[in-house]
Write a protein that binds this DNA or RNA. Sequence first.
DNA 1: ACGACCTATAGGACAGTCCTATAGTTGACC
DNA 2: GGTCAACTATAGGACTGTCCTATAGGTCGT
Lengths: 318, 318
Amino acid sequence: MTVAEELLEPDAVHAFGVFADHLNFTTAAATLHLSQPSLHAKIRKLQAGLGIALYERDGRGLRLTAAGERLAAFARDTARQAGDLLADLSGGLAPVVLAAGRGTFRWVIGDGIRRLAGSGRPVRVLTADRDAALTAVTSGRVDLAVIAHDPPPPSLRSTQLAAYPQTLLLPREHALADRTHLDLTDLDGLDLVVPPPGRPHRRALDRALLDAGVSWNVAAEVDGWELLAHFAALGLGATIVNGCVHPPAGLTAVPLRDLPAVRYWTVWRPERDRSAADALTHLRRAPAGPGRSGAGRPGADQPETPEHPGHPTEVGPR
Amino acid sequence: MTVAEELLEPDAVHAFGVFADHLNFTTAAATLHLSQPSLHAKIRKLQAGLGIALYERDGRGLRLTAAGERLAAFARDTARQAGDLLADLSGGLAPVVLAAGRGTFRWVIGDGIRRLAGSGRPVRVLTADRDAALTAVTSGRVDLAVIAHDPPPPSLRSTQLAAYPQTLLLPREHALADRTHLDLTDLDGLDLVVPPPGRPHRRALDRALLDAGVSWNVAAEVDGWELLAHFAALGLGATIVNGCVHPPAGLTAVPLRDLPAVRYWTVWRPERDRSAADALTHLRRAPAGPGRSGAGRPGADQPETPEHPGHPTEVGPR
DNA sequence: ACGACCTATAGGACAGTCCTATAGTTGACC
DNA sequence: GGTCAACTATAGGACTGTCCTATAGGTCGT
């Protein structure tokens, strides 16, 4: 304890946190209202005290070492907690900040965020793809992230938020439109609106359709569920989206039996457990409106037994 | 964030944490290697910055205000986290410190602590009764506490660690000794070794026996399961203990059907979640040896569904 | 009422941090 | 390949803030 306070000079740690955001002494010093040499000396002293290199030169720029990353996360945690306490003492609430993809915000946690914000808790959001969201969590830049498909690495806390079947969006008058569900083989010969190559959803589709021996044609390549549905509505072809997406006028959604459900995971670091727990209670129960009228139950609320033993963990309501 | 760093001058917060432990400027200053006026000025400045009184005079001594308590807990958390990080950076492990009652250490988590310590994780313990253990958790003096009987207040995280039936310890040759289980009415007319009035276990017994309309005699009043069993072994009378207590030579343990099981709760603050999670994985699974040979399964591992909805929450293994 | 043991205040001494100035390093561009 | 631009890194003097000693102000026990 006493030793910690001497080695981890809190002021220097804070400065390092800011520096870690910039990876540039000059601008970091400016935001700290400090001269560049001053900041440099501070961080040099910090490194000397710890006996560890926190950053290193990477050509023209700088890069954090592993230890530096951890210290930066610690710095952000500390700032977060100080803010929490301060808010607590003054009767307010510190904002919870969360990261997710555009589509996730729109379809999966839109209502949850509305509830959370409606509960009086300030919310800040950050759109990011899966990887960016995960690093934002790991580095302490956000409290909470929501990611799709695969569960996060086990070093992070997580819980499954929802699971939606994948559905085929196609014109009401289409021959397949009246079916209660479809198999992949039913898609044989169809024109499909799909994401561009390389996107996770596209990769999964390619793989699944290939495995099923289905031949199909690229009707259009666009990114994001909104656009997929849009172009399907324009009549370019059918498209495969998440069950939580509302079919636009003229289209029907039919569940695809043998595509895996799209699972959503809420993920956070144990250090941010407190903020996360608060947000979770609002994000859970009944995420955004289901694609098929009223029926599309997300698999949340009572989270099912972990399919990846040891990974998903949970926090109950406080 | 920026504001936080200015109001919550980390150095002052640390100093306040130490002061909170002493509630005495003179001695706190000494442990901080600081003059008393210096410490006083520091804390005065801290209060001024926050615009909140952190302590107040209480006759001759001092006492923390509610805000002061929270800040003190924050200070201890911060110190803890700094220690964790430092240990982490140097490849070591920060000690986990936990509080429980004497009997709990001996009978319920003895093995768990051995496992935890055996895993290379340094452990520090602090014996305390239920209330002391809970305040130690709340004030951040310990990471984790194990308490018996009632679940902790919902502001704390907790999970049920184990549940043992209450058993009657009585001489092998006693008429009741061969029964597989007993009802309270079977105890009518018995001499019982019980805890002194006022102790939780005694209160619960008084209440239960009264409700069952059982009349009984105080054979001895002693505190602690060890002594209860000891005096029962001396032949003073039967005694009622927790199923996890090994019956001494010459005594048999018979479960009492209509006394509620004694539940053990592990409890921690969300802020200490990280340390707690680590310790929990070791404390759980198969706590100390059961009273009846091999059979007494504690209700842990897969924690049963919450009986007090909303209260018990859980962390999975990391 | 006095003394012991504190907390609280005042004012001067010192230490650490911050600044300006400048040298060193690296990549980009002509 | 030489020069420029954008940084990082180092040195040395100025000043702000903190710490100390000394002392006054409270509160309780005897």
